[in-house]
Design a binder for these strands. Structure first.
Length: 576
RNA sequence: GGGAUACUAGCUCAAUGGAUAGAGUAGCUGACUUCGAAUCAGUUGGUUAAAGGUUCGAAUCCUUUGUAUCUCACCA
């Protein structure tokens, strides 16, 4: 679609040149903003900053600029109010442009090409083997997937990596526990719960009998050394756990390109360690090796334990080096909770100290904590909400509502799934990532107001209109040929058209800020705009041209909502 | 004790340093014989945690204080 900001900044730059203002210290494009109120125009340019250089009152400058911009055919009207130049875009050109894109190229009018030829790796979800996949994992999983979709939409080649927690002494413990108290059938029937119960039992017993811990360490060493029996058990635990995780991924329709987890990097650590050593970054301290980061106002990073074994950060250094070599990424994203802020700050700093300029391309996309009304999540204390349960419950209550409404008669289960799971995802992506939140069943299962079902309902309503309308009129609306769309230049129709236009900008902003909620909020606005339009105006009217023109806006809106939801990983059913 | 992040309407949240701080929800009032009421319209609700400062202009930037959460060498 036409980028009006570019056109406007060009026009203003020309005017400023005429006025002999040096534009060296100001970026006109960055100064253009959207007025707080639609009535004040489509774009605005504040003139305060120019006052000093010109030694004139900003109001006067605004008046002069407004005067000179009048002649531009981009605008229908230019006004100065206070010290702002308020610009109104020429309507018909705008309407034509938005409809041409959103109706004729409805499937991909929000797509971009800036990412062509560039690779982005994104590390998200990353659950621990043999541990429950609970509500705490939903954020990284859903946010990560949305960011993947958003960047893919901009043309990037995005590699999704599920960095499984599949390594460490915990697996020594698990193997020991399984050998002592385990049962194959139980594990196969309910892998996570069963394995977790062994793990818990191990901890209880180990308190009485510390020898168990030694045994676990020895067993893990066997695993590291590739002893057949240990490796086979470990592989089996991993496979069974993944099967269970995949149930959730299937429900969410999330896929990964790589499941290279912690174990994958175990043989890549020695080289990374040697490199740190060679580059003189390691320091001996209390029998451990550390990287001193005091200079950068950070705690020291322990790289090897006193017994010589490695740590989380050691593996992550090896991981970062491997990913650069393997994928030659343009950017490397880590969607991990803000609890690990320090860890990633240390990691990226160490990579930088190793002399890699691409350290700046590594981004920690952090997000706030999830807690329960009873307190923080704790597997041991039984404070867990399984993600699978949340999704199932959302689908169930959606189904009840569907049956109650009685609109849908076929594929009820499929629709219930799309709406119920969509509601959970939407809820997750509605707020800024950084906020902590308390999981609340009532909120997840409430479908009124700014929710996923609200947006989907609006989409279904738009589809319903298109289905009801006369076939020939729909054809005309879809083709736009010979259609007088000037009536869309007023009131709620024009407001809605602007919202559809602005979706592209919202997507761009969501990408720049790694903040899917920008899109979530924007499609809510589109839905609100549509519902207002729907209530204020009769769409299927007696007048064929008027109906066709309005329907073209309905089609544009429908496409905008569908595309927006798709970027969040949410379906847009035609009936619900 | 050090560090990080947050604090906006009763509640949940918006607001690239810009115009009168906006939505949803809850409460109240209205709109289904009418294109789908999972909807819409109206209304009540604010010293943006507090105090200073920078600026033509601050919820936003800086300083101090308070509160909450996270984190701080051998867990991941």
């Amino acid at each position: 679609m036409i980028d009006y900001k570019v056109q406007i900044s060009e026009a203003i730059n020309n005017v400023l040149m005429e006025m002999e203002v040096s534009t060296e210290n100001i970026n006109v494009a960055d100064m253009i903003e959207r007025p707080s109120d639609d009535k004040l125009g489509d774009y605005a340019f504040p003139c305060f900053k120019l006052a000093k250089e010109l030694r004139k009152a900003p109001q006067q400058i605004a008046a002069e600029i407004a005067e000179k911009l009048q002649s531009s055919d981009v605008f229908e009207k230019v006004e100065n109010v206070n010290a702002y130049v308020n610009m109104y875009i020429a309507k018909q050109g705008f309407i034509d442009d938005v409809l041409k894109n959103a109706v004729l190229h409805g499937d991909d009018f929000t797509k971009g090409t800036e990412g062509e030829g560039k690779v982005i790796t994104i590390d998200f979800s990353s659950p621990n083997i043999a541990k429950p996949f609970h509500i705490g994992h939903i954020r990284t999983t859903v946010i990560g997937n949305a960011i993947y979709l958003i960047y893919k939409n901009l043309g990037y080649n995005v590699v999704r990596i599920n960095h499984l927690g599949d390594y460490g002494t915990q697996f020594g413990k698990m193997i020991v526990a399984y050998r002592k108290w385990g049962n194959k059938e139980d594990v196969e029937r309910e892998p996570i719960k069963t394995l977790l119960s062994y793990y818990t039992k191990f901890h209880e017993e180990a308190e009485k009998d510390p020898q168990l811990d030694d045994e676990a360490r020895k067993t893990f060493l066997n695993l590291e050394n590739g002893e057949k029996e240990e490796v086979e058990l470990w592989q089996w635990f991993r496979d069974e756990s993944l099967k269970e995780f995949n149930k959730v991924y299937d429900m969410l329709e999330i896929d990964f390109d790589s499941y290279a987890g912690e174990s994958f990097y175990s043989d890549k650590m020695p080289a990374a360690l040697k490199e740190l050593e060679d580059k003189g970054l390691l320091k001996d301290s209390q029998n451990t090796k550390i990287v001193d980061l005091e200079e950068y106002n950070m705690a020291p990073a322990v790289i090897t334990k006193s017994d010589g074994s490695s740590l989380y950060i050691t593996r992550d250094i090896a991981t970062a080096l491997y990913r650069k070599k393997e994928y030659n990424f343009h950017k490397s994203l880590y969607v991990v909770a803000s609890q690990q802020d320090l860890h990633f700050a240390q990691l990226f700093k160490i990579v930088e100290l190793m002399g890699y300029e691409w350290a700046k391309d590594c981004v920690h996309i952090q997000f706030g904590m999830v807690s329960l009304t009873e307190g923080t999540l704790s597997t041991r204390k039984g404070r867990v909400v399984f993600l699978e349960d949340v999704l199932n419950k959302a689908v169930e209550s959606t189904k009840e509502i569907i049956l109650e409404k009685g609109v849908v008669s076929e594929n009820i289960d499929q629709v219930a799934k799309e709406v119920g799971i969509g509601a959970v995802i939407f809820n997750e992506l509605a707020h800024n990532r950084i906020k902590d939140y308390v999981f609340d069943w009532d909120k997840v299962l409430n479908f009124d107001g700014e929710t996923g079902p609200y947006v989907q309902y609006t989409h279904a309503r738009a589809c319903s209109l298109i289905n009801r309308a006369d076939e020939n009129i729909v054809k005309k609306a879809n083709g736009l040929e010979g259609l007088d769309t000037s009536i869309l230049g007023e009131g709620s129709a024009y407001d809605l058209l602007k919202l559809v236009y602005n979706l592209e900008g919202a997507i761009k902003e969501a990408a720049d800020r790694y903040e899917p909620s920008v899109i979530t909020r924007h499609i809510v606005k589109i839905a609100q705009g549509f519902n207002r339009f729907y209530n204020e105006e009769r769409i299927l009217s007696e007048d064929a041209n008027e109906t066709a023109a309005k329907l073209s806006l309905v089609i544009a809106t429908k496409n905008a909502i569908r595309n927006g939801l798709a970027l969040l990983g949410i379906k847009a059913p035609e009936r619900m």
